[in-house]
Write a protein that binds this DNA or RNA. Structure first.
Lengths: 223, 223
DNA sequence: TTCAACCGGAGCGATTCACTCCGTTATTTG
DNA sequence: CAAATAACGGAGTGAATCGCTCCGGTTGAA
């Protein structure tokens, strides 16, 4: 009956659109946060809503894909850090890269989507790599002893969101984004210096447990 | 014509409700962020929506009142800091208090409401007090020299929002809020230590200008 | 030239929002 | 105790926005 299937006539365009959608989703999430709408994402990508929904059956599916990509990049950053010879430089590389990554995509949607097995797996491997980074830095005496891997993970999450950049984007003040990015780097540097072994009095309270950090993947209320 | 007007029959209840509304608004803003709805605020206060709208003509009016109260507290924290003899302790007092204040109320609505003259005035006085705190700390040699008052203001804004606490509240995991608060204090302490004169390499880039920070009061896009 | 695959976006139902309107309740006064 | 009235609560309203569907138009390999 059906003739031998033809090849897709506009397949190249489809692939370009897929990349554009993922990039646009990151950009819109960075600005609009958790309220990012599919319409805004499609518009930013220069693509119709229909095309978005041909590739991803639901909004959640798109966000899950985005999450997996971001987790890959987290893991890669941690491994890059381990590959560096200097323990402090390695840790600093991971922290700064993770902050930049989380700001763009992961932070706003963490906890709003269902966790896939692939995400959990990548998360586990990433945690192990960070733990190794921290142990190595401790052993070298460059990281203050009262700081744990969970402290660092929470610090990254705290610094990932950028309220100032979000607001500037909302106001359309693109002329100031460069200055805001500079300011953000300075703040990140301050926080990093607070992690050095030479800096500071003992931290208050007790080291936080892992259960606290892993909550960021848990689904919202009615569970 | 009209007899001499009677006194309000339920005036005491009205005053209690006003306080409850302001407290509830803070609590809801801390959890729901910018999407906090008047219905949620009224419910949290144990008050009907009608009662809220008898006291404040619009949602914005309520938020403006909240902002003015918060700005008073900012200013008070800065003056308390100046009153302390130890320059570092004074600065640390202001920073930690401001973070706590911003987290609860101001940060989510900054930039979404019109700025009243009273707000601008309080903001100006507060800025001056912080500038004095920073100068004193610089003079005493306890604050790293490459940090400016704007850096500190932006650091406070960055640390004010608490994504972890927000998410835990959204999940109803009230059992973990104590642990989260402990973790937050540790992170704040790390950042504070990063400000000490003893800690760290020179900061990257150049000192941010005031125009960047003052943007947080600017209204959204269509201006 | 043909036609399957891909495109874009108007439109749908559901949801949520800020806000209004009005019957009810509670306290003060005589 | 009874009358008067300010403050009460929340169902209801219209507008806005959301995720998603559906379908007529467009493209380009065969």
């Amino acid at each position: 009956m059906t003739n031998r299937a033809r090849r897709a006539p506009r397949q190249a365009e489809a692939e370009r659109n897929d990349r554009a959608l993922l990039d646009a989703a990151r950009a819109v999430l960075a600005v609009d946060g958790a309220h990012a709408s599919v319409a805004a994402i499609a518009a930013r990508a220069g693509v119709g809503i229909g095309s978005l929904y041909r590739r991803y059956r639901t909004k959640e599916e798109l966000f899950q894909r985005l999450c997996e990509i971001a987790l890959d990049e987290y893991l890669q950053a941690a491994e890059e850090g381990l590959a560096q010879l200097d323990p402090w430089a390695g840790l600093a590389h991971y922290v700064t890269t993770a902050i930049e990554l989380g700001a763009g995509s992961l932070a706003p949607i963490a906890g709003t989507i269902e966790v896939t097995e692939g995400m959990a797996e990548k998360n586990r491997r990433s945690d192990e790599a960070v733990e190794a980074l921290v142990e190595r830095a401790h052993a070298a005496g460059v990281l203050r002893r009262d700081v744990t891997a969970v402290d660092i993970a929470l610090l990254i999450e705290q610094l990932a969101k950028s309220p100032l950049l979000e607001q500037l984007a909302r106001q359309g003040r693109t002329d100031l984004t460069e200055a805001a990015r500079n300011a953000r780097e300075r703040i990140n540097a301050i926080a990093l210096d607070g992690l050095r072994a030479t800096a500071g009095r003992p931290l208050p309270g007790h080291p936080p447990g892992y259960e606290l950090f892993s909550q960021r993947w848990a689904p919202p209320a009615g569970g």
